[in-house]
């Protein structure tokens, strides 16, 4: 099946098995390796992408279901001002250790801040509840998102 979608702002298409996981299409057909496979079953969030601006797990989405969708991966998001704000804030708060989970958390933060530019602690924890991190213990990530929302004032 020929599947068309918008990937990181560009119109693209791929001729493939429509049941192939979006995760595998992004990594293999488009070389976007910022999208990572952790659990492969919707539990950990390392494969997170934005679909129409909202987080989704690419490991449990068949690419055929994403026809005509607007998809953003960390590679596309990296070019934005908002990414810079999150990057600086994560560095300041020590939100990154091994980094495997980081693209997922950054996109979850974007998805949250887009709806709520000044989220409280509870809203932040809820927004990242589908992302697992084995290194940081979450507090530093929550802190990083708080800092981004303060310092990135006006961006969201």
């Amino acid at each position: 099946m020929k599947i068309n979608f918008i990937l990181n702002g560009k119109n693209v298409w791929v001729e493939t098995d429509p049941l192939k996981r979006l995760l595998d299409v992004l990594r293999e057909d488009f070389g976007l390796t910022g999208v990572k496979e952790g659990c492969g079953e919707g539990e950990c969030g390392t494969c997170t992408v934005l679909i129409h601006g909202k987080i989704a797990y690419s490991c449990i989405i068949p690419v055929g279901a994403a026809d005509h969708a607007e998809i953003m991966t960390i590679e596309g998001y990296r070019k934005t001002e908002r990414y810079k704000a999150l990057q600086d804030a994560f560095a300041e708060a020590g939100s990154v250790q091994c980094g495997f989970c980081t693209p997922g958390f950054v996109l979850a933060a974007e998805s949250l801040l887009r709806e709520d530019a000044r989220p409280g602690e509870t809203a932040i924890r809820e927004a990242i509840s589908g992302n697992l991190c084995r290194c940081t213990g979450y507090n530093m990530i929550v802190e990083g998102i708080k800092i981004a929302s303060l310092k990135g004032k006006g961006l969201w």
Partner: peptide, 19 residues
């Protein structure tokens, strides 16, 4: 297949293969 959040997990095979 609506969202596929049940189907893609229950029909899953090993990593890299379509369900």
């Amino acid at each position: 297949l609506a969202g596929g959040t049940d189907l893609m997990v229950s029909r899953r095979r090993w990593s890299g293969l379509s369900p």
